Computed example of a mutant assay.
Amino acid sequence: MADQARRARLAASLDEVRERIARACAAAGRDPGEVALVAVTKTYPASDVVLLAGLGVTDVGENKDQEAAAKAAAVAEAGVSVRWHFVGQLQRNKARSVARYADMVESVDSLRLASALDAAAQKHRETPLDVLIQVSIDGDPARGGAVDSAEDADRDLWRLADTVAAAGGLRLRGLMAVAPKEWDPDRAFELLAGLAARLRDSHPGATVLSAGMSGDLEQAVRHGATHVRIGTSLLGMRNPLR
């Protein structure tokens, strides 16, 4: 009964989120099929991932390796297949673990991390690991992210893009960003869209733009997001794993 009740709540929330995406696409003159929903299930159990998969969710995001690795194993053991997105800040010493289960890492923000992931992917994967470069909208190093024309070569967006594109174990797919809390989301995502257009000029295959969360998905869709990362609006406020 508990699983049935949880499934019903998730189904209702999913319908609401999908309707928000559809309305945002209509307002922007876009096809809703152009925008993928990534369900961010951090702190929620593997059983929720299984339920969401049964409701048609194909992409799932996690931000901590220890939790994500165990959850990915549990979901696979349940016979369910989803695409795992690693969306949190990633330490280089976790690259080997993440490369084993992630289908896409959305938070690559330095040459050193890209090198570690490339080595891990070449050793532990049969296919290249999809990568998004996380962009720092405001340049604050505490939040992570590569920077447009950074003085620090390790975090320079364009140097990093070329490095990922040339890596044998990685595949450059596009950009990801989080709008800073003190910024107007429209301003943040307009800036991001400009960087994405510049990236596609030199790397035409980098067409993914992951932007927008529960509070600002409409603004992200308006500025070309192809993926929105939704947690609270989908999973609600419930007891976390820890």
Results as ranks from 00 to 15, higher is better:
88 G>W: 14
61 G>A: 09
36 A>M: 08
93 N>L: 02
53 A>T: 13
71 K>C: 09
112 R>E: 15
67 E>L: 03
67 E>Y: 10
61 G>N: 10
63 N>D: 15
117 L>V: 01
52 L>A: 12
89 Q>Y: 12
39 A>D: 04
108 V>C: 09
114 A>V: 12
38 V>R: 02
56 G>R: 10
59 D>V: 06
46 A>S: 14
101 Y>N: 04
117 L>A: 05
45 P>C: 11
75 V>S: 02
40 V>F: 01
102 A>P: 05
104 M>C: 15
48 D>V: 06
88 G>V: 15
118 D>H: 06
83 R>E: 10
39 A>Y: 00
58 T>L: 01
67 E>R: 06
54 G>N: 03
48 D>M: 04
96 R>V: 14
107 S>G: 04
118 D>R: 10
58 T>V: 08
111 L>Y: 06
62 E>R: 01
82 V>L: 00
89 Q>I: 13
82 V>F: 01
97 S>P: 01
103 D>A: 00
87 V>S: 06
43 T>D: 07
59 D>K: 07
66 Q>S: 11
98 V>R: 01
36 A>F: 05
57 V>S: 02
91 Q>C: 05
82 V>D: 00
88 G>R: 11
39 A>W: 01
72 A>F: 07
71 K>M: 04
69 A>H: 13
96 R>P: 02
72 A>E: 10
58 T>Y: 01
97 S>Q: 15
41 T>I: 05
41 T>W: 03
50 V>E: 01
90 L>T: 15
42 K>D: 06
67 E>Q: 11
109 D>E: 12
45 P>I: 12
36 A>C: 04
57 V>I: 06
